[in-house]
């Protein structure tokens, strides 16, 4: 008799575990989407003396330029004219201090980077950053 009473008192945790795992899967999936915005095909040039950045400005516009000079923003391929349009629109929103980051492959010819810089300058953005990989 006593034994049966104990059985009834057991807390049902199975369903709770189910929900906890569902939550974990939800967070895993959403976190993975966030990471995919970095262009993995670009191997940045190496810098030996520069400090690594700690925090990123949330307004930062990242322009990826690959070895063949193709440009993409958040993995969306854009042409130079589209890039200029986008920068102009963003500059109107955020002002002259809009931070620009050029993530170019170490083997990208400066010619291609120059074309991006020219468009930035034409829009009125004269301060740009070039991303480099810090060893260690």
């Amino acid at each position: 008799m006593r034994n049966r009473g104990g059985d009834d008192l057991e807390t049902p945790i199975t369903s709770m575990i189910d929900i906890v795992f569902l939550l974990i899967i939800f967070f895993v999936v959403t976190a993975a989407v966030d990471k995919d915005m970095v262009d993995e095909s670009i191997i940045l040039a190496e810098a030996k003396k520069s400090p690594a950045v700690e925090t990123n400005d949330p307004r930062m516009v990242t322009i990826n330029v690959n070895q063949r000079g193709q440009i993409n923003i958040a993995l969306q391929p854009v042409t130079l004219n589209q890039l200029e349009q986008m920068l102009l629109a963003l500059k109107i929103q955020a002002g002259d201090s809009l931070p620009l980051l050029i993530r170019c492959d170490g083997n990208t010819k400066f010619d291609y980077i120059d074309r991006v810089m020219q468009r930035a300058a034409r829009v009125g953005l004269y301060r740009v950053r070039i991303a480099a990989m810090v060893e260690g």
Binding site: M117, A121, R129, V134
Partner: peptide, 9 residues
Amino acid sequence: SEAHLAINL
């Protein structure tokens, strides 16, 4: 870890 090298155009 990335470094961001600032330049002026």
